[in-house]
């Protein structure tokens, strides 16, 4: 099959819509996004209110059942999904932006700047993110989802920085960059108008990966007991169910939905990432 020859954009959509990985990934992410946005309007219960009898299995009235405290699991779930998207957007977004800055400067300037920034990147990448989050979160007595996202974002950028740096490095030696430099453009302007647009696809893929990473990191932190002190998240749901012996009591409806949502959402992100890679890079497409 020949792709339509008219415009580059059309070609992108032509391959994008025929890439199963990308389409399936997008559908799943979109489904959860809609769920997170409209979900809270579908429930008449409050987050912590005692909505009904304790430990009820899923039923027509309590779609996902109730907890040991009689809270509605469905209500917690949809608010938890919202929290997951907030962490992904803020944490993943922040990591991508900081990573971009560091990557652009290191890759474009090279030399000493590169050497120093590279050293910083390698240092930060070696220290496990969760370990740092642990120490910081342990000392914060009041924690919100936003705080959590910011701390995660500020410690996740090295992956993005590495990726962006190597891309910038290879773009830098192209002719059009030399031309831009000859016209006397400032390096900031070259980075923003010449380099960045040429790697938009790459930056977007980086963001997708960072989104997934931030969501998982937050879930682990919440489970260990250093999550938000107010509100709910999918990780907190798992922590609560675990703390109140849902495993031993067999209250599976309390811990299955949050973990399943995390695995599906983040898995869809990873799938999307590979799909996008195939769309942008013709060599990788299935034959």
């Amino acid at each position: 099959m020949e792709p339509p020859q008219s415009k580059e954009k059309n070609e992108f959509f032509y391959f994008a819509l025929r890439n199963n990985k990308l389409v399936i990934g997008l559908i799943v992410v979109f489904f959860f996004l809609v769920f997170a946005i409209i979900g809270p309007f579908l429930t008449e219960h409050d987050l912590n209110e005692r909505a009904g009898p304790r430990n009820q299995p899923p039923s027509a009235e309590y779609w996902f059942g109730t907890t040991t405290f009689g809270q509605d699991v469905f209500t917690q779930f949809v608010y938890g999904l919202r929290a997951a998207f907030i962490v992904g957007l803020v944490g993943g977004g922040l990591a991508t932006i900081v990573g971009m800055m560091v990557g652009f400067f290191a890759g474009y300037h090279g030399g000493m700047v590169d050497e120093l920034l590279n050293m910083l990147t390698n240092t930060v990448i070696t220290i496990p993110k969760l370990a740092v989050l642990l120490v910081i979160a342990a000392y914060l007595t009041v924690r919100g989802v936003i705080h959590e996202s910011i701390v995660i974002g500020l410690w996740s950028w090295p992956w993005a920085a590495r990726a962006v740096r190597s891309q910038t490095f290879s773009l830098k030696s192209r002719n059009f960059i030399d031309m831009a430099r000859m016209t006397g453009m400032s390096s900031m302007k070259i980075i923003w108008t010449e380099i960045a647009p040429n790697m938009m696809s790459y930056l977007f893929m980086t963001f997708v990966l960072q989104f997934g990473g931030a969501v998982l990191a937050a879930a682990t932190l919440d489970f260990i007991g250093l999550g938000p002190t107010e509100g709910i998240s999918l990780g907190l749901m798992m922590q609560h169910s675990f703390n109140w012996s849902a495993i031993q009591l067999g209250i599976w409806w309390w811990f299955v939905p949050p973990g399943a949502a995390l695995a599906l959402l983040v898995g869809a992100m990873y799938l999307m990432n590979v799909g996008l890679d195939e769309v942008f890079n013709p060599k990788l497409r299935e034959r």
């Binding site: 169910s241 675990f242 811990f255 973990g259 995390l262 959402l265 898995g267 990873y270």
Partner: peptide
């Protein structure tokens, strides 16, 4: 395997 890679460790452990 995509799902596995995205599965939170503690969730699989709980399951």
């Amino acid at each position: 395997t995509y799902l596995l890679r995205a599965t939170p460790y503690m969730w699989l452990a709980i399951l």
